[in-house]
Amino acid sequence: MHATMRIAAVLGALALVTGCSSIRNSRGYLVDEVLVASVQPGIDNRESVEQTLGRPTLTSQFGEPVWYYISSRTAQAPFTTPRINAHSVLAIRFDEAGNVATAERTGMDKVVRLDPDGDATPTLGRDRSLLQDLFGNIGTVGAPGTGAR
C-alpha cells in the first residue's frame, strides 16, 4: 500500500512540475543563419533575396526601399504575461537598381519595454473636468471678436 502511495505522489509531483514549465513560442520569420549569411551586398538583388529568404515580414512604404525580416521568441510561465527572450530584425536595403546595398541585423539592444500609465491616457493641453467640457463654451459662441456673425 505504501509503495502505491509513493508512486502516486511521484506521478503527482511530476505532473505539477511539467504543468508549471514555461511555454515557448516563436513568432515571425524563422531565422536560418546559413541563408541569412548568404545574402551579399553588391551581388544579390530583390529576386535572389526573395528566393533565398522568402517574402519579407515588412517592407518600407516611404523613402529608400528596405525589406524587414522580423523574428522573436517569447517565454511565458503559467499565469504570467509573455516575455521576449530573443528578438532579431534583418533589414535589407536596396539601391535604385534593385541590388542589395546593405544587410544589417539588430537584436534585443533595440527592444523597448513600454509600461502603460494606468487607466488614463496622458494628453497635452488643459486638464478640464466634465462640467467644464460641457459648459465651457457658453458665452463664447458668437462673442464679439471671434469672427462669428
Results as ranks from 00 to 15, higher is better:
residue 119 D to R: 11
residue 28 G to L: 00
residue 129 S to E: 01
residue 88 S to Q: 15
residue 32 D to C: 03
residue 93 R to V: 12
residue 52 T to A: 07
residue 106 T to Q: 15
residue 78 P to Y: 05
residue 33 E to Y: 00
residue 87 H to I: 07
residue 53 L to W: 04
residue 5 M to W: 11
residue 60 S to M: 02
residue 13 A to C: 10
residue 88 S to C: 08
residue 98 G to T: 00
residue 68 Y to D: 02
residue 31 V to W: 13
residue 120 A to V: 15
residue 27 R to K: 11
residue 32 D to W: 04
residue 75 A to F: 11
residue 90 L to P: 10
residue 48 S to R: 06
residue 36 V to T: 10
residue 82 P to R: 11
residue 132 Q to W: 05
residue 16 L to P: 00
residue 41 P to M: 01
residue 68 Y to W: 06
residue 130 L to C: 04
residue 81 T to R: 15
residue 33 E to S: 03
residue 118 G to D: 03
residue 124 L to R: 12
residue 91 A to L: 02
residue 99 N to A: 13
residue 47 E to G: 00
residue 61 Q to F: 10
residue 15 A to P: 01
residue 78 P to W: 03
residue 20 C to I: 06
residue 45 N to F: 04
residue 126 R to T: 09
residue 68 Y to L: 08
residue 131 L to T: 14
residue 89 V to G: 01
residue 129 S to K: 02
residue 49 V to W: 01
residue 61 Q to C: 12
residue 106 T to G: 15
residue 99 N to E: 08
residue 64 E to F: 00
residue 87 H to M: 14
residue 43 I to F: 09
residue 32 D to S: 01
residue 34 V to G: 05
residue 82 P to A: 08
residue 73 R to H: 13
residue 112 V to C: 01
residue 42 G to H: 07
residue 76 Q to R: 08
residue 58 L to C: 05
residue 46 R to I: 09
residue 77 A to H: 14
residue 49 V to K: 02
residue 128 R to V: 14
residue 38 S to R: 08
residue 74 T to C: 01
residue 59 T to H: 08
residue 64 E to A: 07
residue 34 V to R: 13
residue 68 Y to K: 11
residue 126 R to N: 11
residue 88 S to R: 15
residue 81 T to G: 15
residue 52 T to L: 12
residue 70 I to K: 10
residue 63 G to Q: 00
residue 98 G to S: 05
residue 34 V to A: 13
residue 72 S to I: 10
residue 28 G to Q: 02
residue 13 A to V: 03
residue 87 H to T: 09
residue 90 L to M: 11
residue 92 I to F: 04
residue 94 F to A: 02
residue 93 R to D: 13
residue 103 A to W: 11
residue 102 T to V: 02
residue 70 I to N: 10
residue 127 D to H: 14
residue 99 N to I: 01
residue 60 S to G: 05
residue 27 R to W: 06
residue 64 E to D: 06
residue 85 N to V: 12
residue 113 R to K: 15
residue 92 I to N: 00
residue 107 G to A: 03
residue 72 S to N: 14
residue 48 S to C: 00
residue 127 D to S: 14
residue 101 A to D: 01
residue 121 T to W: 14
residue 14 L to G: 12
residue 24 R to Y: 06
residue 89 V to Y: 06
residue 80 T to A: 04
residue 92 I to D: 01
residue 106 T to R: 15
residue 122 P to K: 10
residue 87 H to K: 07
residue 31 V to E: 13
residue 49 V to T: 04
residue 4 T to R: 11
residue 79 F to Y: 08
residue 65 P to Q: 11
residue 73 R to P: 09
residue 96 E to H: 14
residue 85 N to C: 04
residue 13 A to R: 00
residue 22 S to E: 11
residue 7 I to S: 10
residue 71 S to P: 07
residue 81 T to N: 15
residue 117 D to L: 14
residue 77 A to E: 14
residue 104 E to S: 13
residue 48 S to D: 07
residue 119 D to F: 15
residue 94 F to V: 04
residue 58 L to H: 08
